Amino acid sequence: MGRFTIAAKHHITVAEIYETELTDMEKAVQNYEKAADYYKGENSTSSANKCLLKVAQFSASMENYEKAIEIYEEVAKPCMDNSLLKYSVKDHFFHASVCHMCMDTVNAQIAVKSYEEQFPAFSDSRECKLVKNLLQAVEDENVDQFTDVLKDYDSISRLDPFLTTLLLRVKKQLNAEPELC
């Protein structure tokens, strides 16, 4: 009867208030998750996915990368079979790959291979090539190469602030590694 949709919209409004005015990301995440659940109850997959992507973004911002990766992969899988949504799959896998890089580069390499097997079009995307080049730079422990790869990509396609923040975290880890030894 649409009541779940109304409840979902209210939760989104509350989440936006927590996000913008109160800057309490944990409560914003909780409300976006509830909204996504309500949208799923109404079979409104696109609205649910929109909320889930917000949850993934905030989770990654709060360094809860496992949850973010899980959501990006969950949202990407049904999109692969939909001709209208298949173009967004590379973005979801790209975000998940960057989250993997923030945690562990070995798992990131495994994840990228998995994404390429699941969705062969991801292999040819600029985003996949960027992740592979960044992983190579991390493996070589070459901060300059890492920076150059990002500059080359950013000169054509601007990275959003969220991805920039995550990639800076990876770069800081790269800078910190030699000091630990």
Results as ranks from 00 to 15, higher is better:
Ser59Pro: 04
Thr45Leu: 14
Glu70Lys: 11
Gly2Val: 10
Lys132Cys: 11
His92Tyr: 15
Leu22Gln: 10
Ala137Gln: 05
Asn43Tyr: 13
Gln145Leu: 13
Ala76Gln: 03
Gln109His: 12
Glu177Asn: 14
Gln145Ile: 06
Cys79Gly: 08
Tyr18Gly: 08
Leu130Gly: 00
Asp81Arg: 08
His10Asn: 15
Asp140Glu: 10
Pro161His: 06
Lys34Ala: 13
Phe94Met: 05
Cys99Thr: 05
Glu116Asp: 06
Leu22Asn: 03
Tyr18Gln: 10
Phe93Asn: 01
Cys181Ala: 15
Phe146Asn: 05
Glu16Tyr: 01
Asp24Asn: 15
Phe122Pro: 00
Ser88His: 08
Tyr38Trp: 09
Asn82Thr: 11
Leu52Glu: 03
Thr165Val: 09
Phe122Cys: 00
Asp140Pro: 00
Tyr153Met: 10
Cys51His: 01
Asp144Pro: 00
Val170Ile: 05
Ser114His: 10
Cys51Ile: 02
Leu84Cys: 08
Tyr72Pro: 02
Ala8Lys: 01
Asn142Cys: 08
Ser59Thr: 03
Tyr65Glu: 00
Ser125Thr: 09
Leu84Ile: 13
Ala96Lys: 01
Gln109Ile: 12
Gln173Arg: 14
Asp140Arg: 07
Met101Pro: 05
Ile69Trp: 04
Tyr115Val: 01
Leu22Asp: 03
Val98Lys: 00
Glu26Ile: 12
Ser46Ala: 08
Tyr39Val: 05
Val75Ile: 06
Ser123Ile: 11
Lys27Glu: 14
Lys67Ser: 06
Phe146Gly: 04
Leu52Asn: 04
Glu116Ile: 09
Ala48Gln: 04
Val75Glu: 00
Val170Pro: 03
Glu179Gln: 12
Met103Lys: 15
Tyr72Met: 03
Ala121Gly: 02
Gln57Lys: 13
Glu179Tyr: 13
Ser155His: 07
Asn64Asp: 12
Leu163Pro: 00
Ser125Pro: 08
Lys9Tyr: 06
Leu163Thr: 05
